[in-house]
Design a binder for these strands. Structure first.
Lengths: 184, 184
DNA sequence: CATTTATAGTATGGAGTCGATACAAATACC
DNA sequence: GGTATTTGTATCGACTCCATACTATAAATG
């Protein structure tokens, strides 16, 4: 087996462990924290149960139950979609944002800063790896909005070429389940 | 948040998803497959329930139950330790080895080969990342036996300086929970 | 050597994941 | 307008996971 594949497997186990202990400190399970973190980075087309199911590769039923738990804990709220009455938009409550503030990712940030490697090549490597694995899984790409082929920069703000809708500035930095392109 | 941290989080989610779908194809859960994969790479000091608990950051009770399931499915066997009657060594059955043969890691291997990055820098980056994160978690390092400070190369074979026992050649390429050193 | 302490593993109960299946409601397609 | 598809929910069974308690063995300590 490829040495990097082994490293990736151990890296993944370690990250999952970080998430687990982080979640446990808040009385949550890993999936709870992962969903909250995802919702924090999902744009208006991706803050839906189905998007969470696609992103994590679980069924809609599982997501539905997880969201029931998160809603009961006061971390997530459900809002109906204005145009499609089947859809439900998820929204993080202040409590959830508070909880995410001292995430394990902060410590990872610090770890990355102290690493004896240059950050640019590391980032390029990780990005290539991510793209390759996404292709491998035959899965939705979930790239950042403003790097999408559909993204249109306009005189005042931006627009999504797929939906035709204008995009608020903060949306353009978030993940989108409709993302299409070559380099995220 | 650091760009690489974000990428790491998405990478981890993607890998976990690969493991999940791989496991589902065999009627297993992610943890089942992860434990089997771990046992395939654990040396004689690390094929214990306690080592699995340390590696994945879960309690001994959880591991105990998972192993009960894996044993019932005929994927793992328990052997008593010759010197310490509290200990139980886990052993993969032929069925388990068969199951691991077409692991998702094979497809990751292929993905890595096709990546537009050089493999050496990628490996170095991942290794640095791994070391940093292990330090971050304040966790057992689980390095490869023959890179350990305790490892002694001898005229005929090798020996562990910690236990004083001779090491079979194939053991020296496996993970050890007692590993100590600076570079794995 | 006897007592104490630490270690390795198991048993049990409760909350929650997860897939499978079935279902309801709304939209898309023709 | 009728059918197919999409989105989300409800329910059941197997399993994870933690907390706690417990047994057995080994190590440390006097």
């Amino acid at each position: 087996m490829n040495a990097s594949t082994l490293l990736l497997e151990r890296l993944s186990a370690l990250i999952h462990q970080s998430v687990r202990s982080e979640a446990a400190r808040h009385g949550l399970l890993p999936m709870h924290l992962q969903v909250l973190s995802y919702l924090d980075r999902a744009n208006q087309y991706s803050d839906l149960p189905i998007a969470i199911a696609e992103y994590f590769g679980v069924t809609r039923g599982t997501v539905s139950q997880t969201l029931t738990v998160l809603e009961r804990k006061g971390l997530v709220a459900r809002d109906p979609d204005a145009h499609d009455r089947r859809r439900v938009h998820l929204r993080l409550t202040p409590a959830a944002r508070n909880l995410l503030a001292d995430s394990w990712t902060r410590r990872v940030d610090e770890t990355l800063r102290d690493l004896p490697v240059e950050s640019d090549p590391l980032e390029q490597n990780l990005r290539a790896l991510l793209t390759g694995l996404q292709r491998l899984n035959g899965q939705q790409a979930f790239g950042v909005c403003h790097t999408c082929d559909h993204f249109l920069r306009e005189a005042h703000g931006a627009r999504c070429g797929l939906t035709g809708e204008p995009l608020a500035e903060e949306q353009t930095f978030k993940l989108c389940r409709e993302w299409t392109g070559t380099t995220d």
